[in-house]
Every structure is written in C-alpha cells, then in structure tokens.
C-alpha cells in the first residue's frame, strides 16, 4: 500500500497543479494579512476561501486525477493487489496532498502573522472540507465511466452543498418562521458539511454576538463537550460515508 501511495504521490507532484494550488493559497493568505492587520478579520476573509475555493478545487482536482490515473489503476488491478488497497491508496494520496497544500498555503502565513484559536479552527475546517469533498469526488468518479459526466456530477455536489442546500434551508426557515426552529435547523445544518464548518467557524469569532438568540443557542450546543464531539462525529461521517459507498461500488465494478 505504501508503495502505491508513493507512486500516486509522485504522479500528483509531476502535474504541478498541487504546487500551483499551494502557491495560490500562500499568496492570497499573505496578501490578506498584509492588507489588514486585524487577524480576526483576516480569518473572516479566509473563511470565504475555505468555504468556496477549497471544496471546489478538492472535488474537481480529485475527480480529474482519478480519470487521469485510470490506466495506472487498471495496471495495478492486473497485479495481485486487493482492489480496496488500491482504492484507499489512491484516496489517501490525493487527500493527503490536498491537505498538505492547504496547511502549507494557509497555515504557514498564519504561523508567521499569528491568528490564534480561530486560526486553528479554520485550519481544522479546511482540512475536514478537503477530505469530505475528496470523498465525494471519488464517489462521483466511480458511479460513471464518462469523465465529463463525472466532473458534472462533482460540480453538482459542490453546487448543491454551497448553494442549493442553503436555498432550501432559507425557504424552510422562511416558511415555518412562526415555529421554534432552532433544534430543527441545527439538525438540518448537520446534513451539510459546508454549513456545519461555517457555523463552527462563525461561533469562534466574536462577531457571533450579532447572531442573536439563534447564535446563542448554537453556541450553547456546539460549545459544549457533547456538541463538539457530535459535530466532529458528523464531519467524520461526511468523510467516511461517501468513501465507503464509493469503495463498495469500486470493488464490484466492471472496469
């Protein structure tokens, strides 16, 4: 397994995309720190990158990479290696390289300029979203043989989680505004990793004082030990579930 991971990793490095991605994150983070001396504001701006750009890059890159290494996968399958091992190795290599790119690109400037506890939460959210969207990318890749179709599905995932789902949520909140919705929305938020990451992040910043009663309710829950464990657990499910499903399909698939 380690050897496969190594080869995939070298392959990823050769395309140089991941280096570009690291450079992009590094430059934009440094630029934000240069523009604004208030580190909590910088974290706020970085939040937009983490919520929009990181999932998009992760899902598109992982999907394209999967199709580009199709021949390699086929070659590996001809060897006496288990399908699961190949699949997990592929995932590990892609996910780790994306995570490293993110941590280097965002984390190093943070270390230099100093961002405190909210910065750590931001890194955590970014890593988790990278893992979740890489899982979703692998799911999109295995459900179809067609590369264009798979990228379409991947983009649809991204679109759904960052836009369509929020639209539905807004509609529900608007329609049932006469009812106490806090508990229901809290569980609905858990069904979208992007929303969950965003809210965990917002509650970290002192700007959460503007969120009124709803914010206080969320803070009360997510700030407690139980809430922290629950939200971490949910995010873990968001990483594991699509990956497990994709692996099931992959292990039975006629390539």
């Amino acid at each position: 397994m380690a050897r496969i991971v190594k080869y995939v990793f070298l392959d990823i490095l050769r395309t140089r995309f991941i280096l570009l991605y690291t450079a992009f994150l590094l430059i934009s983070t440094i630029a934000l720190f240069q523009l604004d001396s208030d580190s909590s504001k910088v974290v706020m701006s970085l939040l937009n990158i983490v919520l929009m750009v990181v999932p998009l890059i992760s899902i598109v890159f992982a999907t394209i990479h999967f199709y580009n290494s199709y021949e390699f996968i086929e070659l590996m399958l001809a060897q006496p290696v288990k399908r699961n091992v190949i699949f997990i190795s592929e995932y590990a290599a892609v996910a780790v390289s994306l995570c490293v790119a993110f941590v280097v690109g965002v984390g190093i400037p943070m270390l230099v300029y100093g961002a405190g506890a909210s910065g750590v939460t931001l890194l955590f959210c970014g890593i988790v979203l990278t893992l979740v969207f890489t899982s979703l990318a692998f799911l999109a890749s295995v459900v179809t043989r067609d590369k264009a179709k798979a990228i379409g599905i991947a983009l649809l995932f991204w679109f759904y989680f960052s836009l369509i789902y929020d639209g539905l949520l807004l509609w529900i909140v608007y329609t049932f505004s006469d009812y106490p919705l806090e508990k229901i929305t809290l569980s609905l938020v858990a069904l979208n990793p992007v929303d969950l990451a965003r809210i965990i992040m917002l509650l970290q910043l002192d700007i959460s004082a503007l969120m009124g009663y709803t914010g206080a309710f969320y803070k009360d829950f997510l700030g407690s030990n139980l809430g922290a464990i629950a939200s971490a657990g949910i995010l873990l499910v968001w990483i594991a579930a699509p990956l497990a499903w994709a692996q099931r399909i992959f292990s039975k698939k006629d390539l």
């Binding site: 706020m44 939040l47 937009n48 919520l51 929009m52 960052s162 836009l163 929020d166 639209g167 949520l169 807004l170 909140v173 608007y174 505004s177 919705l181 806090e182 929305t185 938020v189 992007v194 929303d195 965003r198 809210i199 917002l202 503007l210 969120m211 009124g212 009663y213 709803t214 914010g215 969320y218």
Partner: peptide, 20 residues
C-alpha cells in the same frame, strides 16, 4: 431585512447564497 423578520435565518450568514 430577512434576519430582522426571521431571526433563525441568521444561520445562513456569510454563505455564498446570501452573498448572491
């Protein structure tokens, strides 16, 4: 305005949808 009317909607704050 939306938050003033339905305070629960604050949970969508800073999302891409709200920006659009």
């Amino acid at each position: 305005m939306i938050v003033e009317e339905t305070p629960t909607a604050v949970l969508l704050w800073r999302s891409f949808l709200v920006f659009l």
